[in-house]
Design a protein around this nucleic acid. Structure first.
Lengths: 343, 343
DNA sequence: GTGAAAGCGCTAACAA
DNA sequence: TTGTTAGCGCTTTCAC
């Protein structure tokens, strides 16, 4: 393998100059740079990231810790992050937890990440106190996406507000019996969004003078199948809700399916709204509160790169806007009598 | 940062012994190993991958080149690969092309991958002659997933057969006017599956004595929206097909939506079948030819790791089985007359 | 079973 | 603008 030394010998210069020329640093004459580049290309020179990393202490690599790449939402964020990282010449090391507690443990173990990456992006996970400690010990820029972590750099939406928007939309349509499908507020894939969305839902109901009923709150595990189960539970009740707010589109899609399996029409018999604007949402005609997914990945990546280069930098909390997207899965409530006649 | 040297000093031994003990190599007394491990832990020793990589020439990192992580199919393969890589202590470097020709070019540029990774996994891309040349020059194990590349290690399904199964299913239900939604057989995200599936479709039709009509073949770009457009094109024809075979579930989902928008009932007016068994397939009640997605990632990762460790190894072509999954989107054709009466 | 010593390929002061 | 000189932290012969 040809190294920087071979190029140095070829152009009869020191390796220092070659290194400078190759990296485009200033202080190298245009003519020298050209000769070096030509020689490097001719000799088939390929840089060694290991050597550069060892010498400089920089790996030009960013770790992205994701709960589950197979979830569109996370994949879209990864895609956004990858774009800006690649533009800037950084590589992306993917750590997929996939609900595996031991994987989570290993990734947060200091030894895995230290000296391996220049920065870390954590997706939709609420690191435990212990994990935060380890991240902090890393001494590297860390941005957390989709969780509210005071004191840390974060990129997210206002989950409380998003839930309020969704709930408000249903209330505005005349619904008062509104079911909620959310997720566990702790566990391996823990993050802060579930609780923020739940309280957003409850607060909005109460502000409208509607008492929230624990019986109308179900766990959908933030998956389609979980949403299906939760939907079944809610919709097969005698006093079933006239509308369901699912804290994610995937759970909403599950709920949609549950409604169909129970012979209920959407939106005539039950309205359904989600959060995300999942790529499939329009195909299910799902009303939802859209959030800029891809953008969150881009912003977070931009943020850690700024931290890496810019001198003075402190954790910034970025909150991106959401938007209600009304489609066919929600409609004004039909008065009982009209409903009976309609059937 | 504490290094191997500090540990050596602490236990009063040479760095060579520390290195051996830490890596679990043989030729170290049990007692020494224990002392080293204890010391390393106590001093908070963290290994440096750059240094190890520079000295050994091994990065313990595998590159995964994927057309688009946001597509469930690719994400699932990545997830499968990540699992086995992590189990074996390897890291995964993700390169997401996202339809960007320049990204593709850069990734295949020899310089990016050489000295950076120990092996490469290429997903559903048909590398060009030039790219194959570069991959080959890498001198590292490469496995290609989802493409038929004689002479290279590959993991895939039998696309021709999968298409034949799907088409055969429709023929068996009495359909003869069967539309096809596929994808371009070349371009930035080129791979061999599209052409194999197209010929599988055509051959099966002809073997059944049905002439294939170019007018019934549409391009769905392997996306939901592309499937929607293609579905519209096929189903709004006066002589519309009674069934559609889409070369991927995502396109089939688009076609399903097109049918609904055109007021056609599935499966009464038109049957739809896909390939993949996408995670959403059951929620759309979509009949499909299932392929082991996750498993392909696992097998491919296992394969390159074997190549990395095992001495004698030559490119193996693994073909995983597919299976017809019949759901509600396909049904026996209803004779013209019965159909009219039914309306 | 353990140690000495020579690098791996590059970067970064500091000189010139 | 260019060169000299130390390393960065580890692995790997080759001795003993």
């Amino acid at each position: 393998m040809t190294s920087i030394k071979d190029v140095a010998r070829d152009v009869e210069m020191s390796t220092a100059t070659i290194s400078r020329a190759l990296r485009g640093l200033q202080g190298v004459s245009a003519e020298t740079r050209e000769r070096v580049l030509e020689s490097a290309h001719r000799l088939g020179y390929v840089p060694s990231p290991s050597a550069a990393g060892l010498a400089s202490g920089q790996t030009r690599t960013v770790a992205v810790i994701v709960p589950r790449v197979t979830q569109w939402f996370f994949a879209a964020i990864v895609q956004g992050a990858e774009e800006v990282l690649r533009e800037r010449g950084y590589d992306l090391l993917l750590y997929n937890l996939a609900g595996d507690a031991s994987a989570r443990h290993r990734v947060f173990e200091t030894s895995l990440l230290t000296k391996r990456v220049d920065a870390v992006l954590v997706l939709s996970l609420k690191p435990s106190v212990d994990e935060l400690q380890r991240l902090s010990v890393l001494g590297r820029p860390v941005t957390i996406i989709g969780a509210d972590m005071p004191g840390w750099a974060t990129v997210r939406i206002d989950d409380h507000e998003a839930a309020a928007t969704a709930t408000g939309h249903l209330l505005g349509l005349g619904h008062t019996r509104i079911g909620y499908i959310g997720g566990a507020t702790e566990g391996v894939l823990d993050f802060t969004a579930p609780s923020a969305r739940l309280t957003g839902y409850r607060c909005t109901l109460e502000r409208a003078g509607v008492q929230h009923e624990p019986d109308l709150e179900a766990d959908g595990e933030f998956t389609v199948s979980g949403g299906l189960r939760a939907g079944h539970a809610l919709l097969s009740r005698a006093d079933r809700p006239t509308a369901i707010f699912a804290a994610s589109d995937e759970m909403a899609i599950g709920a949609l399916r549950a409604a169909r399996e129970l012979g209920l029409r959407v939106p005539e018999d039950v309205s359904v709204i989600g959060i995300d604007d999942h790529e499939m949402a329009s195909y299910f005609d799902l009303t939802t509160v859209a959030q800029p997914v891809h953008e969150q990945g881009r912003v977070a990546a931009t943020q850690v790169l700024a931290a890496l280069t810019g001198g003075d930098w402190r954790p910034e909390q970025v909150i991106l806007p959401t938007e209600l997207v009304v489609r066919g899965s929600t409609a004004a409530i039909v008065p009982r009598r009209a409903r009976r006649r309609g059937r």
